[in-house]
C-alpha cells in the first residue's frame, strides 16, 4: 500500500498545509485563551451563591455539556445570521470553541477549588483572613496544582475539535485535507498529512502537560 503512496503530492501541497497548520494553531490559541476567560467567569458565577449569576452559569454549562459541539457550531453558524449578526466563519468557529471549552474549563476550575479541604478555609476564616485573602493564599496555590494538567488536556481536545470548523468552511488543517482530496482525489495522502500535523501539536502539548504535572506534583509533595 505504501508503495502506492504519493509523497510528491504531499510536498506539492505542503505550502497549503502549512497555512492550514498556522490557521489551526491561531484558532486554537485564541479560542483557548478566550475559553479560559469564559471558564473563570462561569465558574466564579457558579460558585458565587448569588442566584441570578449561579443559575444562568449552571444552565450554560449544562447546555454545552449535553449537546454535541458540531450542533453548537451549526447553531451559531445558522443562528447568528437570523439574529441579524453577520459574523465571518472563522469568528463563528472561535466563538463556538470558546463557549464549548469554556464550559468544560469552568468545571475543571471548580473541581480544583472544591478539592481544597474546607477545613483549611475555616482555619483561614478563624484567623481573620477575608474572602479574597483566603482565595489568594489558601485556595488558588493549591487549586492550581490540580487544575493545570486537566487544562492542558482540554487544550488538546480543543485543537482536535477545531477540525469540525472545516464543516463551516474555515480554512484550517482538516479543510486543507479536504481541499487536496477534492482537487487531486488522494484522500490517503491528504489525511495522512493532516493527521501527522495534529500529532505534532498533540505531542508538544502532551510534553507540556507531563512537565507541568511533574513540576506541580513535585511542589505539592514538599
Amino acid at each position: 500500500m505504501l508503495v502506492d503512496f504519493n509523497f510528491r503530492i504531499i510536498f506539492e501541497y505542503l505550502p497549503l498545509f502549512l497555512t492550514g497548520l498556522r490557521s489551526t494553531f491561531f484558532i486554537s490559541l485564541v479560542s483557548i485563551s478566550l475559553a479560559l476567560v469564559t471558564g473563570v467567569i462561569a465558574c466564579a458565577c457558579r460558585i458565587s451563591g448569588i442566584k441570578i449569576l449561579k443559575y444562568p452559569a449552571i444552565a450554560f454549562i449544562e447546555i454545552i455539556r449535553s449537546t454535541p459541539l458540531l450542533v453548537q457550531i451549526y447553531f451559531l453558524y445558522f443562528g447568528l445570521p437570523t439574529l441579524g449578526l453577520r459574523v465571518p466563519e472563522i469568528q463563528t468557529g472561535i466563538i463556538a470553541l470558546m463557549l464549548n471549552s469554556g464550559a468544560y474549563i469552568a468545571e475543571i476550575i471548580r473541581a480544583g477549588i472544591t478539592s481544597v479541604d474546607q477545613g483549611q478555609l475555616e482555619a483561614g476564616t478563624a484567623s481573620g483572613l477575608n474572602y479574597i485573602q483566603r482565595m489568594r493564599f489558601i485556595i488558588l496555590p493549591q487549586a492550581l496544582g490540580v487544575t493545570v494538567p486537566p487544562l492542558l488536556g482540554q487544550s488538546i481536545v480543543l485543537v482536535k475539535d477545531s477540525a469540525l470548523l472545516s464543516l463551516i468552511s474555515v480554512m484550517e488543517l482538516t479543510r486543507c485535507g479536504q481541499t487536496m482530496t477534492s482537487e487531486r482525489f488522494m484522500p490517503a495522502e491528504a489525511f495522512f498529512t493532516v493527521a501527522f500535523f495534529y500529532m505534532c501539536i498533540y505531542f508538544c502539548l502532551k510534553a507540556l502537560a507531563d512537565w507541568s504535572q511533574r513540576k506541580l506534583i513535585f511542589r505539592e509533595a514538599y
Partner: peptide
C-alpha cells in the same frame, strides 16, 4: 468588625487544618 474580633480569638481544630503548601 469580624476581622478584628477573629484576630483576638485563636481557634484550634480537631483535624489541625494546616496549609499543606
Amino acid at each position: 468588625n469580624l476581622t478584628k474580633l477573629r484576630a483576638e480569638i485563636g481557634f484550634v481544630f480537631q483535624q489541625f487544618h494546616l496549609y499543606p503548601h
